[in-house]
Amino acid sequence: MSDIILKNISKAYDGKQVLNHFSLTLPEGKRTCIMGPSGCGKTTLLNILCGLQKADEGEIRNLPGKISVVFQENRLCEQFTALENVRMVAPEKTETAKDILASLGLVNDLYQKAASLSGGMKRRVAIARALCFDAPLVVMDEPFKGLDEETKETVMETVMQMTEGKTVLIITHDEQEARRFADHIVIMQEH
């Protein structure tokens, strides 16, 4: 896989320009962090990158067929266990799924239904699901939101280890988090 190139991406909603000829290169195997105020188009950019929204203009080059995503919301199947939520994206990797959940501090909660987990635990399950899915590009929208400082440190460490060699795009509001995590940081501004 080569660098992923977003070129002149534009998107408007109801006449409001959210992205205006935005260009960005995601270097292969590196972690890129996007920061910026609310409403500057970070999540829209992520959705366009994932193919969930269409750009009005512009193009994306070298986009892989598989992308691991941690959405802004957890998007878990609430009636299923933490393990089942991770396993569903890679059924053949049950042991890996267990190991990832354990490394994220959920070793005792593998068989708990997602509905009964706390907000922070659900977030970690959503992260584990993305890490278990074998994709060359990992996209995360505020993945560490809602985690306490100690847990955040452990989770960040695991994410960094497990995404080693993959291209990673992360969206955050936390500058410290960005400095700790990213190889390079991109600041987006509101129009």
Binding site: G51, K66, V69, F71, R75, M88, V89, R129, F133
Partner: peptide
């Protein structure tokens, strides 16, 4: 719809 988007991203 958000769950269906998740399913799409993970090729379910």
């Amino acid at each position: 719809v958000k769950m269906l988007e998740m399913a799409k991203m993970y090729h379910l």
